[in-house]
Nucleic acid binder design. Structure first.
Lengths: 205, 205, 205, 205
DNA sequence: CCCTAAACGAGACGGTACGTCTAGTCTTATG
DNA sequence: CATAAGACTAGACGTACCGTCTCGTTTAGGG
């Protein structure tokens, strides 16, 4: 698990046990869906995993970073690359995949809780960017690059802003809870972002 | 303060003291900017305000709802209506106002913490929608209505989605912290949303 | 309970509950005899007494001082004054009373553990002297005073040393465990101390 | 070190290292005077000695027995036999030697801690009797035997009780801390015990 | 002008989880 | 085998807050 604190030296002393890693992450996943990050305690995890508390603290500095590792297994597998032939189609498909992984699911509740937790856990915040935001955006960046190659949108389009509009709208409804994420919403967002992108050269003000 | 629990009966007994209200909200505001919602405890607030804990619990059910009241004073005053003559100009101006109230300010840190807290405090979540989201969107709805009246965008545009795109992108950067909110970002978002809106009839898939 | 930390002001706030005091001391007494001071934990006491841990820490700074209070109830009642008419008889009777309270009893195990604990708990050490050693010696001082008045022993006898010889020998066997405390031992100690006291003027070297 | 657990078989495999023994005992001695038995942990000792924890556990079953070995080196050398010509003189000299080894010294603090520890470490308690109490008393027994041979005290004197009176008084002040051990105290104790011994036949009640 | 009911400051209450620490055991790679 | 290193389970420590609950006191109407 890449976010773990690695043992200082290297091969001296008893090595960390993989069994323990797995048991902790399994217990964390379970508790995360059963009661959410906030109601999950380190002591719960240790008890459920049949592990001493120090074996957890030895690996993860905070509850949030532990939860992040447990979350990643589930989440990333559900965000494969897409290719529909049009920018609007790609955006819609990506957002549909995201929403089906996240809306009303345990994974989604974990995501929401992690974003919340990251607001006061800076280690988690950094891990979140590096291990969730960056990979997902990197993967989806190709959608936009293909659209540029097809001549659908300007060559100097700001890919980051396109991503922010697409996911921003979705995260907004997920986190603020003022309206729900429906297929119609997704279709409209994808259409408007794709359309807006056509006029979206990076800096023409 | 409208979110307070009001005394059941009516006028018997000693009335609630306005001094106490003010002292609590002042202490909350201070502590909120000094150390953030998460590190602020009810006991801190009581001590700072020179007030018994029960005088706080009598008025607000959770730490979040208390913080919401303290936040609202500061925030809403800073979001006046705008009118620039074009949709893109209105959107840009509204977002600029928002960002100057929120980016790098104590108010912004409070906002972020409140959104986080609302993820596991349902009373707060409801209050957040009713007392922050709804008023702000209501106020800004006129921007879009004017654009429709001017014939800039279709009559059946989905105002909610336009708002979600605009604020969603901004909240996204604020909450995820992967990129910063610059004037260029705001300009580009406003332009792309305005452009996208031109093709954004509510349901044409 | 005189060793408790008393509340700062006086009558402000909710007063300490006598019920809680009693429950804690009862639980402590029980656990002390069931498993000894060392194996007794504050958490055990709290659970047994049906009390929060903080209600214990609020009153007693260390496990030792808590145990001391629990011990005192039992012990002091068992050390009434004696009067036999002769010094040797008084000493023998006092030591017999002490030994029957202490040898092979839960109270005795508590005493031994407290003396041990006092070696690294200075607050307890001071409390032990003030609330056990001093009262017992004060009470028994009259035995020696009467012996002086009867002319049995010199007027300038060192009462402290007489006490140290009498109790010292007994504590020695109790704590070192090299030999046991029998009636014959007690009789002989009492006789030898009484006899030694006849030549024991305070400073004739 | 006689209290160590000896290796089961004999000569198979890598032999125990004397260096390790010495390093452990040296580290123990140092830590014992620096912070006392109670604050000394096995992990401290291992770290200071540059040794694995298991190399300590392989040799000594408990912290107390380890400390006992470290203590013995220092202590026993300081208790040579005495011969003054009179019982009172011998007792006084023996007690003076003991007090100068023990009162206000690191050795003394170790002794006190060991007696305390022995109250809940039965292996240590047994070792204490066998390797401290017994040798010292055996050595000093000759003082009393000589006094009997000189006709100073009855032939059927109880040597154990004489020792208990002498050392008991001293240990009492050392452990209870209610009064200090001065030359005057020692002189008076020696005189009173010697005097008491003249009437101290074993069982004449 | 008293009476009564509620609000007030203070702080004790039963709980719960924290993150740290030590104990004593176990598991590596290296001598 | 013994060794140094250090991970392992277990569980107590003392602290910090939680939200509730007494206290004695204060402050208003309503009778």
């Amino acid at each position: 698990m890449s976010s773990e604190i690695s043992p200082a030296g290297a091969t001296r002393g008893r090595p960390r046990s993989d069994e323990v890693d797995k048991a902790i992450l399994r217990a964390t996943s379970e508790l995360l869906s059963e009661r959410g990050l906030d109601a999950m305690t380190i002591e719960d995890v240790a008890a459920r995993a049949g592990v001493g508390k120090s074996s957890i603290y030895r690996r993860w500095p905070t509850k949030g970073t532990l939860a992040l590792d447990a979350f990643l297994n589930d989440f990333l597998a559900q965000q494969p690359p897409v290719d529909d032939g049009t920018l609007k189609g790609d955006l819609q498909e990506a957002l549909t995949l995201w929403s089906s992984a996240v809306v009303g699911t345990p994974t989604g509740r974990a995501l929401v809780a992690l974003v919340a937790e990251a607001q006061h856990d800076h280690v988690l915040a950094q891990g979140w960017i590096e291990r969730v935001m960056t990979p997902v955006r990197e993967q989806h960046r190709t959608m936009v690059v293909r659209a540029i190659e097809r001549g659908e949108i300007p060559a100097d389009s700001d890919i980051d802003v396109i991503m922010d509009l697409l996911y921003g709208a979705a995260y907004h409804r997920l986190l603020q809870g003022h309206l729900s994420i429906t297929p119609e919403f997704i279709e409209l967002v994808a259409r408007m972002v794709a359309e807006g992108a056509k006029s979206g050269a990076a800096s023409s003000h």
